[in-house]
Amino acid sequence: MKIYVYIIRRLILMIFVLFGVSVIVFVLARGFPSALDPAAMYITEHTTAEQYAKIVEDHGFNKPLYVQYFYWLQDVFGGDWGVSKWAASQPTYKVFFDRFPYTVELTVVAVLMTVAIGIPLGIISAIRNNKIEDHVSRLIALTGYSTPSYWMGYVLQLIFFYYFYMWGLPYLPNKGMVDEFLLGTIPRVSGVPILDGLLAGNLTYAWSALVHVLMPAFTLAFISLGTLARLIRASMLEVMRQDYIILARSKGLAERVVIYRHAMKNALIPAVTLTGLLFAGLLGGAMITEYVFTWPGVGRMSLQAVFQGDSNFLLLYSLVLAAIIVFTNLVVDVLYAFLDPRIKY
């Protein structure tokens, strides 16, 4: 019973946090009109001074900040998130949710790669503790962690796109999420390109989508696998020192069985939670990678939003992603309780 209370408490906390985030972003984005003009989204080069004044009056940009916030809250609860100019003045939520699945695709593939490479790397590191394999694995993990994402992105493009092309090898594309001539050839169901391609039975589309996502996902994965590998390593080392491992060996079990049946189950529990957090973090943090690969996701949009002063988009973006982050934290904590039989709420 207590676990439901816990969940409800966390959800209430989530609402509080979201308010906090919205206030901070609002204050920053609208509170300094000299730096970021809140009316920027509604004007063009041809706007006259009178039209400008009218726009300011209509939207209440000249009112005190807390009043503006209140208006914004009203709008938001009515479903109106404002307008984003550079996407042909479309409503902001459409701009966001049109592109959100692309970021999701990128993140999911990146997380899969991270797990596929990071977990074995961590296990090897732990089993061969302080031997050469350990040092090499740690070096790889730490290098990944220290790599600037734009550097990795560009280097990958240099090799697999540019040089491979120069050398006549099959090359990976460096822009967008599908080949341009394929855009719009299939119905949009989920918005995730690979998924939609498979659902429509159009394997060319799906393949093209897969090929496009490889480099950007790998860039993200390379950076993240360090944390995961290190966590697994530490966790495994800790577990292997436990007394129950000695007991398992004393039963005459082969070392492989000891590792896979006894040690790993214990060691992987924190990894599950980390993977969840990784997913949430990558969703919001892929902006540079999206920029470098011209990936039409929300990260790239947020960059443009900052430069263009699009406070509407920034608010929506921050709130959606903050909600995902907080919610993922909650899910991960609850999951931990399920996975580790020792924890009772």
């Binding site: 906390l13 509080f16 946090v17 979201l18 906090g20 985030v21 901070i24 972003v25 920053l28 984005a29 509170g31 300094f32 730096a35 970021l36 973090g281 969703l283 919001g284 943090g285 892929a286 902006m287 540079i288 990260g299 947020s302 960059l303 900052v306 430069f307 002063g309 920034l314 973006y317 921050s318 992603l321 903050a322 982050i325 907080v326």
Partner: peptide, 24 residues
């Protein structure tokens, strides 16, 4: 703790970017 939670919830570089954009 609550204030810290709010800051933790910010995705990626958004906060830094907006801050930088605003304050010059």
């Amino acid at each position: 703790l609550r204030i810290t939670d709010i800051f933790f919830a910010f995705p990626g570089l958004v906060l830094a970017m907006v801050f930088a954009a605003v304050f010059g």
